[in-house]
Nucleic acid binder design. Sequence first.
DNA 1: CCCGATCCTTGATCTGGATCAACGTCCGGG
DNA 2: CCCGGACGTTGATCCAGATCAAGGATCGGG
Lengths: 232, 232
Amino acid sequence: MRADELANVRGLQLFRDMDDARFADLMRAAYLQTFPPHVQLIQEGDRADFLFIVTEGCVELFAAWNGHEITMMMVEPGGTFILAAVLKDAVHLMSARTAVKSRILMIPAEAVRGAFERDDAFSRSIVLELADCYRGMVKAQKDLKLRSGVERLAARLLRYDREHGGTGTFSLPHDKRTLAALLGMTPENLSRAFATLRPYGVEADGPNVVLSSVADLQRLAKPNPLIDDKAV
Amino acid sequence: MRADELANVRGLQLFRDMDDARFADLMRAAYLQTFPPHVQLIQEGDRADFLFIVTEGCVELFAAWNGHEITMMMVEPGGTFILAAVLKDAVHLMSARTAVKSRILMIPAEAVRGAFERDDAFSRSIVLELADCYRGMVKAQKDLKLRSGVERLAARLLRYDREHGGTGTFSLPHDKRTLAALLGMTPENLSRAFATLRPYGVEADGPNVVLSSVADLQRLAKPNPLIDDKAV
DNA sequence: CCCGATCCTTGATCTGGATCAACGTCCGGG
DNA sequence: CCCGGACGTTGATCCAGATCAAGGATCGGG
């Protein structure tokens, strides 16, 4: 593991306040591995053997039932996944696969639970991390049930713009097929949604997006911090 | 607070392992109150001032945006809500109202955070409780996105039956209007869904339901522990 | 005992989004 | 340099579920 990667991991909310020695123990037990795109990392229903942390690349969490498949979320660098299952020593509710080539830190579940039992600061950090995960799911649920597809796309574009500094110019973090799945729509409908947003100043050229009339777009998307703000 | 109520609260996952004195402190700071039906307890966007625990009755968590309103979940006796917001000292993402006359234990957020800081066993219990909440949301998301309305109703009926001892006879825990909202459909469509399930042995007479052909219903609902099992 | 309100059901219609199909564009490999 | 496949767009059609409308059933209150 490179020194800068180690520093990045150490700086995550989850590990920030952890005891030095305990953190070193965890890292000693962990594996860092690089995976090519589209490799399945976990399968829903399997026992949770590792806590995963994305250090580079991007991982898709998804779920399937009766032949359908849905995308639950995309995990970006600095993000963790499967924390809840690891702590409960339970079975995965979601599957995971790399979206692109990714570097993933894998910490054995046993080690995580051990640190959770023994390190009080760590167990408190876990609380905050889990609270964030939970609230993220609540927001996703609201987004999905309260807004139409076009509104979801509009709100998402505004969020991406905000996260890129609000310049009105950014490029999509995923390909459109993935973005469609993430927004809970088909690729066809995403395409149509982009077309619908053209009159609202949304110019999409491949992955590059320019928002030339943010005010109009906001009037349509009605962004709400209780749905769209990561930090809230 | 009655002695049996106190014992019930003490027995909850959240408080079970807590230090005796600390638990007494928490209870001393708490208010127990009885509310009539349809009283709004919290408003999304407001600061989280209390952790709520339902001891009797039933509370609906809901969210609104742009004039629509959706039901997020129903909290039954023994259930807690707003834990994540209290711990993060953040704003509510959901509103809450009593569905029926309810007894609610309200613990000041300050006291909860204090206990969380000082009582290691409590902070670990919180982790497990939050993990359950998170996984509950994941399951709800899967249920909603992967199944049709009829399938959701079928799976839900099977779950109610299971929770009532699997006798094939039970009564619905909520009125149909509420059940519809909980399943993410309109009352009209819930009514039609019940009609659709009649050939599968579902006899609904008011709140009373008889499942006369569980196997047929299961073939339709394709229940899956990773969606339908509370305990998983 | 009747009235009005609430809840549920049923029917008719509408619509957002899914599905099916075809086509253009880009890109990597032979 | 050309071919084949992945990806995205657009059009046509279909369907689940929402909406609109109306009619019973039940029940509490005057």
